[in-house]
């Protein structure tokens, strides 16, 4: 991990409580999704975000209304963090009518025009030029919105990522490339798949500034994202943020995770957990009481349980849905 964790938070109690609530919502939501998967209620691929919560919550803290976001298939956290309804997300996971895509997209394919969330893409690296296209539209329209484009350490080796870096820098597109380096491209560790491990330097040949960020520290993420967003809004072109983070669960649900040790995972959970970090900042600083945090825990748990109930009660899509939305 690159940076050291902040001990003196430059964040108000309200801000910290907000980050705590948002990260916990993702954590509990993903745990519930894992449970529903175990019960056979969610099928296919299901990639959980547990461990990486600080990345998306920190970036969202730097975004404004109108900014867009687009990501890969590990996307539930991004949807919750930008304010999409947990009911609609969970019901899409169960393939029900109440899901964001009415059951036609699944875990990897959800969208919200309202929240400027552009998916949810299943082909590794393919969402990167799409994100630059969102930024292109911002520039074309002359607004100051920024397109937050997330991808993983594995995608960072795809050719189209570099095609995109070139165009984004050439045309000074307002796009932040957020590399969520969770250390493993499925089962291949970074050093087994990347000739150079410092992914934030991958834009150097194109003149794109990059920065390594402690992706387990929501405040470090937020501050780096603020800097990148300002850079984009000033018309200076793209910015790369390499978020060093860690996923606790397997690549997808059926991953036995033989490529890393149990101890490695346990150590990260015990010493680097992003949610525990904020909890400590709140309690050790004396800002928040146990009762306040417990109340948030309960609120979040209730919200997630409600979404799980909704996702099971919502009916399967009508068979006529098979034939709709092929053409506009």
């Amino acid at each position: 991990m690159a940076a050291t964790r902040q001990r003196k938070p430059n964040a108000s109690k309200e801000e910290l409580l907000g980050y705590y609530r948002d990260m916990l919502l993702i954590r509990r939501f993903e745990e519930k999704a894992g449970q529903l998967y175990g019960m056979g209620l969610i099928g296919g691929f299901c990639h959980l975000y547990i461990g990486q919560e600080a990345v998306v919550v920190g970036v969202e803290a730097a975004a404004k209304e109108g900014d867009q976001r687009i990501t890969t298939y590990r996307d539930h956290g991004h949807m919750l963090a930008c304010g999409m309804d947990p009911d609609g997300v969970m019901a899409e996971l169960t393939g029900r009518e109440g899901g964001y895509s009415r059951g036609k997209g699944g875990s990897m394919h959800m969208f919200s025009k309202e929240k400027e969330f552009y998916g949810g893409h299943g082909i590794v690296g393919a969402n990167v030029p799409l994100g630059a296209g969102l930024a292109f539209a911002n520039q074309y329209r002359g607004n100051d919105n920024v397109a937050c484009t997330y991808f993983g350490d594995g995608a960072a080796n795809q050719g189209q990522v570099y095609e995109t870096f070139n165009m984004a820098s050439l045309w000074k597109l307002p796009v932040i490339f957020i590399i969520e380096n969770n250390q493993y491209a499925m089962g291949t560790s970074l050093k087994r798949g990347s000739s150079t491990p410092a992914l934030y330097t991958r834009g150097e040949a194109f003149g794109i500034p990059g920065e390594a960020v402690d992706g387990m520290d929501v405040l470090a993420v937020r501050d780096a994202a603020k800097k990148a967003v300002a850079h984009c809004r000033e018309g200076k072109g793209p910015y790369i943020l390499e978020m060093n983070t860690y996923r606790y669960r397997g690549h997808s649900m059926s991953d036995p995770a033989k490529y890393r040790t149990r101890e490695e995972v346990q150590k990260m959970r015990e010493t680097r957990d992003p949610i525990e970090h904020v909890r400590e900042l709140l309690t050790l600083g004396g800002d928040a009481t146990d009762e306040e945090l417990k109340a948030i825990d309960k609120e979040v748990r209730d919200r997630v349980n409600k979404s799980a109930e909704f996702a099971q009660a919502s009916p399967e899509p009508d068979l006529s849905e098979l034939w709709t939305d092929v053409y506009a």
Binding site: I70, P129, G133, F136, T164, M167
Partner: peptide, 11 residues
Amino acid sequence: HGFAGLAVGAA
């Protein structure tokens, strides 16, 4: 590959 994807994003 890149500009086709970029144009799709713009669409």
